[in-house]
Amino acid sequence: MNLHEYQAKELLSRYGVPSPKARLVRSVEEAAGAARDLGGASWAVKAQIHAGLRHDAGGVRMVSSPEAARAAAEDLLDRPLVTPQTGPKGKLVRSVYIEQAVGAARELYLAVLVDRSRGRVSLIAAREGGNDIEGRMAAAPGEMLRLVADPEAGLDEAAAGDLAARLGLDGAARGQAVDIMKAIVKAFGDLDASLIEINPLALTNDGQLTALDVKMVLDDNALFRHQDLAVLRDEEELDPTELEAQRFALNYVHLDGNIGVMVNGAGLALATVDLLKQQGGEPADFMDIRPEATRGQVDEGFRLLLRNRKINAILVNIYGGGILRCDTVAEGIAAACKAEGLRVPLIVRAAGTNGELARKILKAQGIPVNFADSIGQAASMVVAAAGREAA
Rank of each mutant, 00 (worst) to 15 (best):
V263M: 10
V263G: 03
V263F: 04
N264G: 12
G265K: 11
A266G: 08
A266P: 07
A266E: 05
G267K: 14
L268S: 10
A269Q: 05
A269E: 01
L270Q: 11
A271Q: 05
A271L: 08
A271R: 03
T272C: 06
T272I: 12
V273L: 15
D274W: 12
D274Y: 13
D274T: 13
D274S: 14
L275F: 09
L276A: 04
L276G: 06
L276K: 11
K277E: 06
K277S: 08
K277Q: 14
K277L: 14
Q278G: 06
Q279S: 15
G280V: 02
G281E: 04
G281R: 05
P283D: 04
P283W: 07
A284V: 03
A284C: 01
A284M: 02
D285L: 11
I289N: 11
I289Q: 09
I289F: 15
I289R: 01
I289T: 13
I289M: 14
I289D: 01
R290A: 15
R290L: 14
P291K: 06
E292I: 09
A293F: 09
A293R: 04
A293S: 15
A293D: 09
R295F: 07
R295L: 08
G296Y: 12
G296T: 13
G296S: 15
Q297I: 12
Q297R: 14
V298S: 09
V298Y: 04
D299A: 03
D299I: 01
E300Q: 11
G301L: 05
F302G: 01
F302W: 08
F302R: 03
F302H: 09
R303H: 10
R303C: 14
R303P: 10
L304M: 15
L304S: 03
L305E: 00
L305C: 03
L305M: 12
L305R: 03
L306D: 01
L306C: 07
R307W: 11
R307I: 10
R307D: 12
N308A: 13
K310D: 15
K310N: 15
I311G: 02
I311C: 09
I311K: 02
N312H: 14
I314R: 02
I314P: 00
L315I: 07
V316N: 00
N317S: 10
I318H: 05
I318N: 08
Y319H: 11
Y319N: 14
Y319K: 06
Y319G: 05
Y319C: 12
Y319P: 02
G320W: 02
G321E: 03
G321V: 09
G321I: 09
G321W: 08
G322W: 05
G322F: 13
G322V: 10
I323S: 10
I323V: 13
I323D: 06
L324N: 09
L324H: 04
L324F: 07
R325S: 15
R325V: 13
